[in-house]
Design a protein around this nucleic acid. Structure first.
Lengths: 215, 215
DNA sequence: TGCAAAAACTAATAAGCGTTAGTTTTGACA
DNA sequence: TGTCAAAACTAACGCTTATTAGTTTTTGCA
C-alpha cells in the first residue's frame, strides 16, 4: 500500500497540487486525469480525495496563489519612489524571477485559467484586468514624465506580459543560456523599446537610477 | 434533417474545421467534444465523419496550414534584399497581419499543438524549431552588421514571437484601439528594443529604408 | 421520374472520466 | 498492546467521450 510522502511543509496537499501542476503544464488541465495525478504520486485516484475537494480545487489553488504573488508585488512598486521606468523594470524583473522559481504554476495560471469554475473564473478575470489597468496607468505616468516614449499603454502592457510569459525555457535555462544573461537580454529589449530616446542627456541620469521599495 | 451548408470554397470540411477552430480557441481542444462541434453546425456528431477522418485530423489541418503560411513568408524574406532590421520588421508585420486575418487558427497553432498525435507532433515541433533558428540567424546577421544591438538571439526571437502571439484581442481590436495603430505601436516597441542606438547618424538612413520582396 | 451516391440519421460500442461508498490498512499515542 | 482516527484501498456509479454500424433521407443526374 503506497502512500503520499509530505513535503518539507508537511502538507500532503501540496504534493498533490505540485504533481498535478507538472501534468497540467505538460498535457493541459482537461487532458490530465485524476488517475494520471495519482499514478505519478504512486497511489490510487480515490485516495487523493482524503486531501483535496476536487480537481477544480487544484486549479483554483494554483491560479489564485500566483495571482496573489503578482498583486502583492505590484502594490509594493506602486508605493515605492523613483523613476517610472525603473518601476516598470522592477515589475519586469519580478515577472522573470517568478518564471524562474514558479515556472509550472505561472504557466498554468497563464494558460489554463479558462477552466476555472464559476464564480472563481469571473473573479480571476477581474483580478487580471485590474492588474493590467494598474500597469497601464504606471506606463502612462512614465509617458507624461517623458521617460517613456509615447505609445498605446494597452498594447505596451500586453507586449511586456506576453513577451515574458512566452519564454518556454526559463526553468531549464541553464542549457541554452544562463539565467542572469537571459534576464538581462529580455529586460534590455523591453526597456529600450519603451525608453524615450528623444530626451536630453541630463534626464538619462535620473532615469537610470533604481527605485527604492518601501518595506 | 439539418445539413452542413458549404462555404464559398464549396468545402463542407472547411465549415467543420472552422467551426471546430472557434470552439478549440474558446474551450481548448480536449474540452471540445465532437458533439459540441456538431451542435454549432446544426447536425448530429456522427454526420461529421462523412467529411473528416477524426477529431485529431481537424487539429492537424489547422496547425500545419498555419505553419506552412509562416514558412512560406519567411522564405520570401530570406530571399529578399535590404537591411536586416527591415526584414525583421517585415516578419513582425506578417505575424501581426496573420493575427488579424487568422486569429483563431494562429491561436490554436500556438496553444493546442501539444495535442497533435505522433508522428505529426514531432514534425510540427521540428518545423517550429527550424523557423526560430532561421529567425535567430537573421537577427545575428543584423547584429554583425551593427543594425541590431548585441543581444542573445534566442531570447530576442522568443520575445518577438510571444509578444505578438500574446495579444489576445486582435480580432476585436476595434473596441479599444484600431488595428493599424495596434500594429504601429507593437512594431515600434519591438524594433526600437532591437535597434542599435549607438550607431552614427549616416547609418540610420540605410536602416530605415524598406526591403524589396522578390516576387 | 428513377436510380445511385452522398450525407444525414439513430443506436450502440468500449473506454475513460470525476467522484462516492464502503472497507481495510496504517500510524500515533494511551 | 489496544484503540482510534487518518489515509489508503477496491468496487462501482452515472456520465461523457470518440467513433462505428446500420439505416434512412436527400441530392444530382439520366
Amino acid at each position: 500500500m503506497a502512500k503520499i510522502i509530505p513535503d518539507k511543509n508537511g502538507s500532503k496537499k501540496d504534493v498533490i497540487v505540485q504533481s498535478a501542476a507538472s501534468l497540467f503544464k505538460e498535457k493541459g488541465y482537461t487532458a490530465t486525469s485524476m488517475r494520471d495525478i495519482a499514478e505519478t504520486i504512486g497511489v490510487e485516484a480515490p485516495s487523493l480525495y482524503n486531501h483535496i475537494e476536487s480537481k477544480k480545487e487544484i486549479l483554483n489553488d494554483i491560479c489564485f496563489r500566483i495571482a496573489r504573488l503578482f498583486t502583492i508585488h505590484l502594490k509594493e512598486v506602486e508605493l515605492s519612489t523613483g523613476p517610472v521606468l525603473s518601476k516598470i523594470e522592477s515589475i519586469i524583473r519580478f515577472h522573470i524571477s517568478m518564471m524562474m522559481t514558479e515556472y509550472k504554476n505561472v504557466y498554468i495560471s497563464d494558460h489554463e485559467w479558462k477552466h476555472l469554475p464559476e464564480p472563481y473564473l469571473t473573479d480571476f478575470k477581474n483580478q487580471r484586468r485590474n492588474y493590467r489597468s494598474r500597469l497601464a496607468a504606471l506606463l502612462q505616468k512614465g509617458i507624461d514624465k517623458n521617460e517613456i516614449t509615447p505609445v498605446n499603454t494597452y498594447v505596451a502592457v500586453l507586449t511586456i506580459l506576453s513577451a515574458i510569459g512566452g519564454i518556454e525555457s526559463w526553468q531549464r535555462s541553464s542549457k541554452k543560456i544562463d539565467a542572469k544573461s537571459l534576464e538581462e537580454n529580455m529586460v534590455n529589449i523591453l526597456i529600450e523599446g519603451l525608453r524615450n530616446h528623444a530626451i536630453i542627456n541630463t534626464d538619462k541620469k535620473i532615469m537610470n537610477q533604481s527605485i527604492k521599495i518601501n518595506q
